[in-house]
Each structure stands twice: as C-alpha cells, then as structure tokens.
C-alpha cells in the first residue's frame, strides 16, 4: 500500500479493504454533469478516513453509495467483501447491521427516550438477548458517551452535542465493522466538536473498525484522520495522509486549505 511514505491507492486489492470503489459513476436525471465521476476510493480496517469537499461536490452521494441507499450507474462497489450491486432485501439488511452510522442531524427517533433509542438496534438485531442484558449494554454505552444520567430524557430535551453522543452510542451498539459519520460536528461549538472528534477516535480504535467521516472541518480531519481526501465536482482530486494532503500542489486543495487558515 505505501512506498517511501507515498500511498499507492491504485494497486490496493479489494480484499485488503472494508470498502472498495472502482470507477464509480452516478448521474441524476436532469443534471448535465455526473455527481460522481469515475471515483476510486478505499476504506482500510482500523483507519480513520475523511472526505472533504465543497457543498454539492459528491461527498454525501459517496456515503449513500457505500450504504446501498443509492445504486451506481457504473463501476464497482465492494463493502465488507460484498458486491453492493448484487445485494438487496435481507442480504443487504444483514450487511447493513455491520455498519454504524452517525447522521448529520443525529436522526434519533423522537418518540423514544434516549435509553430506547440506544436499545433500539439491540432489540431489533439481538433477538436472543433478554431485556436485562440489553439494559446493561445500553448503560455501558451511555456511560461511554458520558450520558448515563440522560437515559430517560427525550431527544427534544437534549442539546445538539448530546444528541450526537446518543446517536454515537446507538451507532456502536452492535459493535460494527464500519463506522460512517456524516458531518459529525456541523453546527456544534468548538469544544463540543472536539469531544465528538475524540469520541470518534476512541470508538474506532476500541472497535478496531474502519471509519469514514464526511466533513467540511479540515482542522479536525487533519488532527484525527489517517487518510484525508478531497472531492470536487464528483472527482477525488487529492488523497493521502494528513501531511501529504497539506503538501498538495492542487490549486483547489490549496485554496481550501488557505480559506481554513491551514496555510
């Protein structure tokens, strides 16, 4: 994968990765240009990957492709060893139970308490677990995100940062192999953002999972990621370790870095 510090992504085999995209293209009806244009991408086990980019650049579409919420027009997508183009119904649902996803708005079920939100995937997917075992696991998870005292609160009573932490507890409840974060710190203050970022690092390391973060936050990306990429107009224009990314000579990357005060 790496030679003399430079990562050679082109030669990576699907078996070495959790997610492997090759020449993935997606164009929506009515759009003159493809939203994703021949994208190659990989997510490695036990590594944190961040995709940066301008709004409308194709970041969220890439995420939805990996989740199987959108189908590619062409190209190959392999997730956890499975070909996404061939998966549907129960097979796709089984695969998705190995994902943990943190949505931009947390996506907590507003009719359920914090406890029931975290217990939800366990009650659905661990049918052999009794309520007592589920309760212990939920307490452990809420303790992990330091929200054990908020168990009986409703999502509407929580702050943005607390919602994200509950959503994080729910996302890792089934001990997933692949963690996906859609703009995890958008709309949060710098201190709360840092807490969420640290939580991402801790949980990824603890679960020995691979993680993909979709973000605008370049500072956090450079601080916590093993690999940083940038997508512009549906194309990955730069990929590498944080230090390689900062040294990029692509003018669009440099502009992005400059506007964020990194250069």
């Amino acid at each position: 994968m790496a030679t003399k510090g430079k990562v050679q992504f082109e030669n990576v085999k699907a078996e070495e990765t959790l997610v492997w995209l090759r020449a993935v293209t997606k164009q929506f009806p009515g759009n003159p240009l493809p939203t994703l244009d021949c994208v190659d991408y990989e997510i490695f086990p036990e590594k944190i990957h961040t995709i940066l980019g301008f709004s409308g650049g194709g970041k969220s579409v890439t995420l939805k492709m990996i989740l199987g919420l959108l189908k590619a027009d062409s190209g190959q997508i392999r997730v956890l060893g499975q070909d996404m183009s061939k998966l549907e119904g129960n097979a796709l649902n089984s695969l998705r139970r190995r994902f943990g996803m943190l949505f931009q708005g947390a996506a907590l079920f507003d009719s359920l308490t914090v406890f029931d939100n975290v217990a939800f995937p366990l009650r659905e997917c661990r049918k052999d677990w009794g309520e007592e075992k589920i309760s212990l696991r939920v307490k452990e998870l809420l303790d992990q995100v330091e929200l054990d005292l908020a168990a009986q609160k409703m999502p509407s009573e929580l702050s943005g940062g607390m919602k994200k932490r509950v959503a994080m507890a729910r996302a890792i409840a089934l001990e997933p192999d692949l963690l996906l974060f859609d703009e995890p710190t958008t709309g949060l203050d710098p201190v709360t953002s840092e807490i969420i970022d640290d939580l991402i690092v801790d949980t990824t390391r603890k679960l020995a999972a691979g993680a993909l973060i979709i973000s605008h936050n370049i500072h956090a990306a450079l601080r916590i990621s093993d690999f940083v990429s940038m997508i512009v107009d549906g194309k990955i224009i730069e990929r590498g370790t944080p230090s390689q990314f900062v040294e990029s000579e692509d003018p669009r990357v440099r502009r992005f870095l400059k506007s964020a005060g990194v250069l």
């Binding site: 989740l67 649902n93 998705r96 139970r97 996506a107 507003d110 939800f120 659905e124």
Partner: peptide, 18 residues
C-alpha cells in the same frame, strides 16, 4: 414526513430494518 426529513427513515434503513 418529519421522520423522512430528519433522516430517521434513513436511520432505520441503515440499521437493516425495512
């Protein structure tokens, strides 16, 4: 509708629940 626009339906789908 609220569940759709707040991604709660997507969350169900991603958890492997129809």
């Amino acid at each position: 509708g609220i569940m759709r626009v707040t991604e709660q339906i997507d969350a169900l789908e991603v958890m492997g629940i129809s």
